[in-house]
Simulated assay, not measured.
Amino acid sequence: MKNKNLLLCVIGLTLLTSCGSYVRIGDLTGISNRNIDNSQNYVLLERDVEAIANSEKDALEQAVDNMTKEFEGEFLRNAKIYVKSNGKKVKVIGDVWGIQKTNVNVTTSANANVELKIGDKIVFKRKGDIIDGKIIGLNSDSVIVEFGKRNKKIELKYDDVTKTEQ
């Protein structure tokens, strides 16, 4: 009797964990439901965002569409794709890329009005050193900067960067 109860518990736990967990099915460099125009200057709009879609069909397409629409982007890079064991629920995590639509005006404490836009050169302080970088993305409260020999990317507050030239 104890063996039957133990067996039922193990089967029950296996069923519960298999139904409730996501299985990673792959990593993709890029994913899009639209054609990408190589003449456009695409920029990083948002990093490491997540979308989940429930669907009987095309759940992956729906998840990608949800993410690009939410952040007004065109495609995803560095995408990780997860699927529920029943195949009807898909989770996508990745970086949204698109066309930057606006410039940002920042008012400093000295009441100077500084306009930041994609491609501007800036400096910022990191670990006591002053680092040169280039703006590749703008958010409502932060700027995304590319710097270094390996083109590292970092998100910084507007107060942490200083524009050097265009």
Rank of each mutant, 00 (worst) to 15 (best):
N38T: 14
S39E: 14
S39F: 10
Q40E: 09
Q40V: 13
Q40F: 14
Q40G: 09
N41L: 15
N41E: 15
Y42D: 02
Y42I: 02
L44F: 04
L44G: 02
L45C: 11
L45K: 14
L45H: 00
E46G: 09
R47V: 14
R47E: 14
D48N: 15
E50D: 13
E50L: 14
E50N: 12
E50F: 08
E50W: 07
I52R: 10
I52K: 08
I52W: 06
I52F: 00
A53I: 00
A53V: 00
N54K: 14
N54Y: 15
N54Q: 15
N54D: 15
N54I: 11
S55F: 06
E56G: 13
E56I: 07
D58V: 01
D58K: 08
L60P: 04
L60A: 00
Q62D: 14
Q62L: 12
A63L: 02
D65L: 07
M67T: 02
M67L: 10
K69T: 04
K69R: 07
E70A: 07
E70N: 03
E70Q: 10
E70M: 05
F71K: 01
F71R: 00
G73D: 01
G73I: 00
G73K: 00
F75M: 07
L76N: 01
L76D: 02
L76S: 03
R77C: 02
N78L: 04
K80S: 07
K80C: 05
V83W: 03
K84N: 09
K84W: 03
K84M: 12
S85P: 08
G87S: 06
G87C: 06
G87V: 06
K88Q: 08
K88A: 07
K89Y: 08
V90Q: 02
V90L: 03
K91G: 06
K91T: 04
I93V: 15
I93P: 10
G94R: 09
G94P: 04
D95W: 05
V96L: 05
W97F: 12
I99R: 10
I99E: 14
I99A: 11
Q100K: 11
K101H: 08
K101A: 08
T102P: 03
T102G: 05
N103R: 13
N103F: 10
V104H: 13
V104F: 06
V104S: 06
V104G: 03
N105K: 14
N105W: 07
V106R: 12
T107G: 04
T108H: 12
T108R: 10
T108W: 09
T108V: 05
S109D: 11
S109N: 11
S109E: 13
A110L: 10
N111S: 14
N111K: 10
N111Q: 15
A112S: 13
